[in-house]
């Protein structure tokens, strides 16, 4: 990443690399945010979502962005302060890009009440800000950065202390949660999710659970994508299955319930219907969680 080279250059190239970073963040916010910015249900949610649920979503997004920034930052973040700064920039970019696109699409007009305008921008800024952080890391892909990350990981492995293992484990679960959240935010607001849940019988749901878990495990361990995690030959396959795939599915399930609740899809609904919606939403969630382990 340019930031790495910048220390050699003068102030001008440093600010240039920062601007490039901002550009990548904006591109990421756009790339990851567009599907949601052009979803009718999310515009409507902007004005009818209960304000304290929206508030909670906006608050939850802050530590999420900071942790994510710590992992894959705008600049190479080493301290918490830097991660906070990057998270703030990403959130700001998310808000600005969401507002700009919504205005361009004619979805925000001056005569609208302020609470509607704010609600629409606020709800879109969450996925857009995650996109801004991801854009920075995923659109950057120069060789320099790749090498650098490998170095970093090796350093980590070498310096591993027993505590490190559980830290990287929790980080792994965190990444799965981010991946699940991201795909969930894409599909959860649409009416199709509850419609599918209503159309499905319990037998369909059983198959969906099994397929979701199988896809999650297959994505990470069986199909050889770039970044695939290998299991050594003497480790039985079920070790990774119990330690990563099942917790991953549980994380996807919890995120699904949280997102459905935030969007008011669980209100006045019977427990079985809640579970069915969560199972439907966990299907994309599981794919997102598995993909996050590979990509991030």
């Amino acid at each position: 990443m340019n930031g790495v080279r910048a220390e050699r250059g003068d102030g001008a190239s440093e600010s240039r690399s920062f601007l490039i970073g901002l550009g990548r963040g904006a591109a990421g916010a756009m790339l990851f945010g567009i599907p949601m910015l052009m979803t009718m249900e999310l515009w409507q949610l902007g004005f009818y979502i209960e304000r304290w649920r929206l508030f909670l979503l906006l608050i939850v997004n802050i530590p999420l962005l900071i942790l994510l920034a710590h992992r894959i930052g705008f600049e190479r973040t080493s301290t918490v302060a830097e991660a906070c700064r990057d998270a703030t920039i990403a959130y700001g970019l998310g808000i600005v890009i969401s507002a700009a696109v919504l205005i361009m699409l004619g979805d925000i007009k001056p005569h609208m009440p302020l609470s509607e305008i704010l609600g629409k921008i606020a709800i879109q800024s969450v996925p857009a800000s995650i996109g801004a952080l991801l854009g920075r890391s995923q659109l950057g892909g120069q060789a320099g950065k790749e090498e650098d990350q490998d170095d970093e990981e090796e350093d980590e492995e070498e310096g591993a202390v027993p505590d490190e293992i559980s830290t990287s484990y929790s980080r792994e679960l965190f990444l799965m949660a981010v991946g699940a959240l991201f795909l969930n935010l894409n599909v959860a607001p649409t009416e199709e999710i509850i419609l599918i849940a209503y159309k499905m019988t319990p037998s369909h749901a059983l198959v969906t659970i099994c397929v979701s878990i199988a896809i999650m495990h297959g994505f990470v361990y069986a199909v050889a994508f770039k970044g695939t995690h290998e299991i050594s030959e003497e480790t039985p396959w079920w070790h990774a299955f119990f330690r990563f795939t099942l917790p991953g599915y549980m994380v996807a399930m919890l995120i699904s319930l949280y997102v459905l609740w935030t969007f008011g899809r669980l209100d006045d609904t019977g427990p079985t219907q809640m579970l069915m919606s969560a199972i439907v939403l966990s299907f994309p969630g599981a794919i997102g969680a598995a993909a996050a382990r590979l990509i991030l």
């Binding site: 492995e157 293992i165 484990y169 290998e230 480790t235 990774a240 330690r243 549980m250």
Partner: peptide, 19 residues
């Protein structure tokens, strides 16, 4: 080389069992 093959922390198994 990979996180999975290191000696797993007991928390990993606990989480696995709960999940």
């Amino acid at each position: 080389r990979h996180r999975e093959v290191k000696e797993p922390h007991w928390i990993e198994w606990a989480t696995g069992v709960i999940s």
